[in-house]
Amino acid sequence: MLLKKTLNDPQTRFYISKCKYCGRVFIKFENKTGYCREACRTWAVREQKARYQQKRRKLINDGELISNENNKLGTTYLSNHRHDDFKREYLSIHKEAKRIGVIL
């Protein structure tokens, strides 16, 4: 059974805290609460995700971070269609095998 917490209950502990997002002063009943309302929490999480993605995109564009999308098994630079010329097809397959380290 969940008991309703009220300010009049002598066993209820509450803390006055500042919202991490908007800076508004609010009363929190749990120690882990950091935001005054659900909207502040949602916007804070969105901003954190946006900052993370900006940092990640910058690292990828600078060449410091290789994207995981390029490292998936089966990702190759071979085209979807084969070459009509057997020699060109053989060379492209050989070049790709060398790139991924199958052939030295």
Rank of each mutant, 00 (worst) to 15 (best):
C19K: 11
T76V: 11
S17P: 08
D62N: 10
K20T: 08
Q54W: 02
S17L: 08
I100G: 04
H81M: 00
N71K: 14
L78I: 05
G74R: 06
I66A: 14
K20Y: 08
R41S: 02
K58S: 12
K32W: 04
I66L: 15
T33M: 07
T6P: 09
R37L: 12
R57N: 04
K20L: 14
L91V: 03
C36W: 10
Q11T: 15
V45D: 07
N80V: 09
L73K: 03
T6S: 15
L59H: 01
K4Y: 03
T42G: 08
L2Q: 13
D85L: 10
A50Y: 08
Y52K: 14
R13T: 05
T33W: 02
L3R: 12
N80T: 14
A44H: 04
K32S: 13
I16S: 01
E69R: 10
L59V: 00
D84F: 13
C19Q: 10
V45P: 04
V25N: 04
Y90P: 08
R13H: 02
L2Y: 14
I27S: 00
N70Y: 13
V102G: 07
I93H: 03
K58W: 06
K5W: 07
C19H: 09
K95R: 09
L7V: 13
G23R: 02
N80W: 06
L7Y: 15
E89F: 00
G101C: 02
V45F: 08
Q48F: 15
D62W: 09
C22P: 07
E38Q: 14
C40I: 00
D85E: 13
G74F: 01
H83Q: 14
L104N: 06
N31M: 13
E96T: 01
I93L: 08
F26Q: 04
F29E: 06
A97F: 13
K58R: 13
N80C: 10
E38C: 05
R99S: 12
N71P: 04
D9H: 14
C19V: 07
K58T: 09
K98A: 07
N31Q: 13
P10Q: 02
E64H: 06
K28R: 06
R51A: 11
Y52W: 15
N68A: 08
R13C: 02
L59D: 00
G101M: 03
R56D: 01
L78T: 03
V25Y: 03
L78R: 02
A44Q: 06
L78N: 02
L2P: 13
L91H: 02
K87W: 05
F29G: 12
T12K: 11
E30S: 12
I100Y: 05
T33C: 04
T42P: 05
Y90N: 11
